[in-house]
Design a protein around this nucleic acid. Structure first.
Length: 378
DNA sequence: TCTGGGGTCCTAGGACCC
DNA sequence: TCTGGGGTCCTAGGACCC
């Protein structure tokens, strides 16, 4: 007589980027290490990952390197080396796929959902941590949940090098009093709109009037936020390989651009890089998006559908320039980006998949376990 | 303090067709 | 004279995540 049930595990590598750098430069172990941009803290760039030692100085992901160096002048600053992280990531994902009975859904370089049926999910989570460390020398934390949202959030409580279990039984006990921003998919903007209706905590949101949520956020997002408050989401881990919808390139300029000529030259450069990426996918561009960040800090996005699919960088660049011109904005430019939406693959996209995002389509993509059953609140 | 670079998805509203 | 709905395509804009 066993009690085998399906579980969602969320595996997240600890200080992944910094850890990969320290592995190949062991003399950095124990030092404050900051990885970001080109590794020059005098440039316009932000922190990708700070080691735990650097975090003790208050350095966080997303913080400008200039701020980080002020907080810890003695920190070691390293450039981002994407190929190295991709290689380490592939090794980790390979270990996960080799776990008995595991279904693996990759979310990013350093995280994945693992679906497994077991009677002891915490023991299974620990066996993942051991296997990953033995194969790669990288530490990870694992969240154990009965839904994806609960597993994802649980991981934070397990960090570093730990396992944490979050289910319908302890959801409100652990999460109920926390602000709505503690939820995966609720940022400061949504939290402010929720607060305008008096919904400030996870428990407030769980008990929210659905009609109010629908009026505020629409028929899809409104109920989605309500479910999020209860920790309810899909529990189906889907290993269908992710297929990109688009590829883009963007650059922040160390000095702002002002001349139309240098702006079109920059857009041409970005268009050329984008074409390399979409050629590799063998799917031509059907829509061009332009992203502009004007100084001091104001961002706009504009898109335009093309008359026909193309790989021609001149067409893409010309479209981007036309979108820029249509803005009729004379302010200096600090960032430009060009993004190419590609023709969908034969037969369309397999299942609407999202990376780096716990949106409602990720929730909808499976209903197993997506019931509204939650334990009574304490 | 001064805010990267890579993505995805949702909503609203206008245009157009039947 | 006044005025349908439903569907699709497109653009603008907003939000979130790693």
């Amino acid at each position: 007589m066993t009690d085998e049930r399906p579980w969602v595990l969320h595996v997240d590598l600890d200080q992944f980027i910094a850890a990969v750098e320290i592995l190949r430069r062991p003399e950095l172990a124990g030092l404050p290490v900051v990885v970001g941009g080109r590794g020059d803290p005098t440039e316009r760039a932000v922190v990708s990952t700070a080691s735990y030692e650097a975090r003790e100085f208050g350095i966080r992901s997303g913080m400008p390197l200039k701020t980080a160096v002020r907080k810890c002048p003695d920190a070691v600053f390293l450039p981002v080396d994407a190929p190295a992280y991709e290689e380490a990531s592939a090794a980790v994902m390979g270990v996960l796929r080799g776990m008995p009975g595991a279904v693996v859904e990759v979310l990013g370089w350093d995280e994945a959902f693992v679906g497994v049926t077991t009677e002891d999910p915490v023991a299974y989570a620990n066996s993942i941590r051991t296997a990953v460390f033995e194969a790669t020398s990288l530490h990870c934390s694992v969240g154990v949940g009965d839904t994806k949202v609960r597993a994802k959030i649980a991981t934070d409580f397990g960090k570093p090098q730990g396992v944490y279990r979050l289910t319908r039984d302890n959801w409100f006990e652990v999460m109920g009093a926390r602000p709505t921003t503690a939820l995966w998919g609720v940022g400061t903007r949504i939290a402010a709109r929720l607060a305008s209706h008096g919904y400030r905590t996870v428990e407030d949101l769980a008990d929210a009037d659905e009609a109010v949520l629908v009026a505020e956020f629409g028929p899809t997002m409104g109920p989605h936020y309500g479910r999020l408050g209860r920790g309810v989401s899909s529990a189906t881990v889907d290993d269908t390989p992710w297929v990109a919808r688009a590829h883009g390139r963007e650059t922040t300029y160390q000095t702002n651009l002002t001349e139309p000529q240098e702006i079109s030259a920059a857009l041409r450069e970005l268009a050329g890089q984008v074409v390399e990426d979409i050629r590799a996918e063998q799917r031509p561009c059907i829509r061009v998006f332009l992203k502009v960040r004007f100084a001091p800090f104001f961002t706009v996005n504009r898109g335009r559908k093309l008359a026909e699919p193309t790989y021609d960088p001149d067409v893409i660049a010309a479209t981007a320039v036309a979108l820029f011109t249509a803005l009729e904005d004379e302010r200096p430019v600090r960032l430009l980006g060009v993004r190419a939406e590609m023709v969908p693959p034969e037969g369309g996209y397999d299942s609407p998949r999202s990376t780096g995002r716990g949106g409602p389509s990720a929730q909808r993509s499976g209903t197993a376990g997506a019931t509204d059953d939650v334990a009574p609140k304490p």
